[in-house]
Design a protein around this nucleic acid. Structure first.
Lengths: 251, 251
DNA sequence: GCTCGTCCGATTGTCATACAGTCAGGCGAG
DNA sequence: CTCGCCTGACTGTATGACAATCGGACGAGC
């Protein structure tokens, strides 16, 4: 989930109608630190920093224009999120996943996303179910029209967002967001997840959405597990192929 | 509790026979930072810092003897672990869980620990199963002999450690460790989890261990879920009672 | 030519200091 | 008694400095 860039506004318990004002005065300047955090996280997840690449403080300073103090604090946060690894006396390195680790992550995803879906079915309002359907339709059309990988990812994110919100468990949301971040790191390793997957993924998700609409928690969860498992297969396969290079790069 | 300014690295008592080469080359002087992290985490989890309490940098500096730079980096890590919350312009505060958040955490624990047990049954060696039984027996006797709460917690930790190792998924381990930390934060909120729980917990865990020994994954997982659910009930109940005070302390 | 030990540069880990910005609470004026 | 200002306590951020360490280049010796 990406830690919120802006701090939780200390809810101005004041009168309602000042919302716009509160927004204005409440959060004019986000802590510099969190802005940098966002930028770097984004850079890693969009593969502008390759897995295994060293993140040298000096260079980050030059790139961002903030002081070393700030950079270092940000690096600690990224490390805690699992996006970079800090090697003693060596500094921060973008995490490169081994096939085994990837497998572990997918196993976790299976469990958590299965649960996510189950809770969504239990708790989501009808409106949220509709939103899910809408998000799915959107994804479908993006895939059909063969828009870029980025567009597909974005559509998927929307869909997940609907699920996370509907499931109503912020701890689950936090865990899954972190997990997703790390998994998409894997995507960076294997470059493309293979061109054949998206259509299949859509088919799998269609099953999911329909089960949700029928309010069948078990079936929906199963569909999600199936989906994740399929994604795992290709994902791990891909990383396995490119792993030689990675091993070289990492060591 | 002053931390030694210098790391306690290779004990230069090296004149002795080199017990283990690995130890020598492996240990590269623990970064001061990580030592401080451990100390503070420990302090939080052992309730020496109360939930809602502000952690003022200056005071931490005095307590630990390290510089502000280091302290701040540690605080970022603690924040990412979910043990402290950073309020803009206000600094770090030990997290205080609301009943709702506690409920969410327990829900997650149910899922993850259920999975943990299932995987343990699937993957653990016979030796590990024996280790589990041993850990359980130890816990049992600690509870019977009415040793302190600390001893009980320690024994539980050992048991969990066995499970985590046997399940063979380091990502799962990481997630659960974090989760456990946050849950035990809850214990700090509610002071004592109630004196009646331990014996019940032992009974629940006995069911678990026996199911594991019979290699019945489903039953074992169910037992764990039951256990967590029971713990949740008392845990949340406790926090709910003390929540007024907490709200006051937090705000 | 090859191996080995040494030295150097690049970086991290840590510290001390400084200063602006912000928030809370006290104090005094109306 | 309320309002507004002032001050003190902290955080957020920047800067400079220095030891320790690591990797690689360089040069000596075989």
């Amino acid at each position: 989930m990406t830690i919120m860039p802006y701090a939780e506004p200390v809810s101005e318990a004041g009168s309602e109608q000042v919302t716009s004002l509160a927004a204005q005065i409440g959060r004019v300047a986000a802590p510099l630190r969190s802005q940098v955090l966002d930028v770097l996280r984004e850079a890693i997840l969009s593969f502008r920093f390759a897995p295994g690449q060293r993140l040298i403080e000096r260079e980050l300073i030059d790139m961002t224009g903030v002081s070393r103090t700030t950079i270092r604090e940000v690096l600690r946060e990224l490390a805690a999120e699992g996006l970079v690894k800090t090697i003693p006396q060596k500094g921060a390195v973008v995490v490169a996943l081994s096939p085994e680790e990837a497998e572990e992550l997918y196993e976790l995803r299976e469990v958590l996303e299965g649960h996510l879906v189950k809770k969504f079915v239990e708790r989501a309002s009808d409106a949220q179910v509709v939103a899910l359907r809408r998000a799915f339709t959107q994804l479908e059309s993006v895939v059909e029209r063969r828009e870029g990988t980025v567009a597909v990812l974005k559509a998927k994110d929307v869909l997940y967002e609907v699920l996370l919100t509907g499931a109503g468990n912020s701890a689950l949301r936090a865990s899954l967001s972190q997990l997703h971040a790390r998994v998409s790191l894997l995507r960076a390793s294997s470059l493309s997840s293979g061109p054949a997957r998206p259509p299949e993924a859509v088919a799998e998700l269609r099953v999911l959405v329909e089960a949700v609409e029928a309010r069948e928690a078990g079936a929906a969860a199963d569909a999600m597990v199936t989906h994740v498992r399929a994604a795992a297969r290709t994902g791990i396969e891909a990383i396995r192929h490119s792993s030689h290079a990675l091993v070289a790069a990492t060591s």
